[in-house]
Amino acid sequence: MKLCITAQGDNLDAKVDPRFGRSEYFIFVDTETLEFEAIKNPNSDAMGGAGIQSGQLVVEKDPDVLITGNNIGPNAFQILKTTDIVIITGVSGSVKEAIEKYKKGELKPGDYQS
């Protein structure tokens, strides 16, 4: 299972970034091996359209699940809903904790509506 988690830093101890479009990093992690790739988000200080471009970036990496803090903006959602990526919001704490919680089945996708 491949997760994408919005993060404030480039490693698993970093905090989950509550923002999606303007998240500092995206961490793509394999739940089995815990191997991960941290991508610095080039859109974090974009003037506009950050959600759109971040959406495109995540979609290209094709994770199974996206984990973030706040709700996802309507534009990013337009992009993400073209795929079957499961969106989980309202998550805080460290990236590592988020992965643990996900594996234990404690994180449930809401009825996601943008």
């Binding site: 759109i52 471009q53 534009n75």
Partner: peptide, 13 residues
């Protein structure tokens, strides 16, 4: 940043 190019779709905002 108004255009997103997906695998087989393009979204323009």
């Amino acid at each position: 940043n108004a255009i997103a190019v997906l695998k087989n779709d393009i979204k323009i905002f």
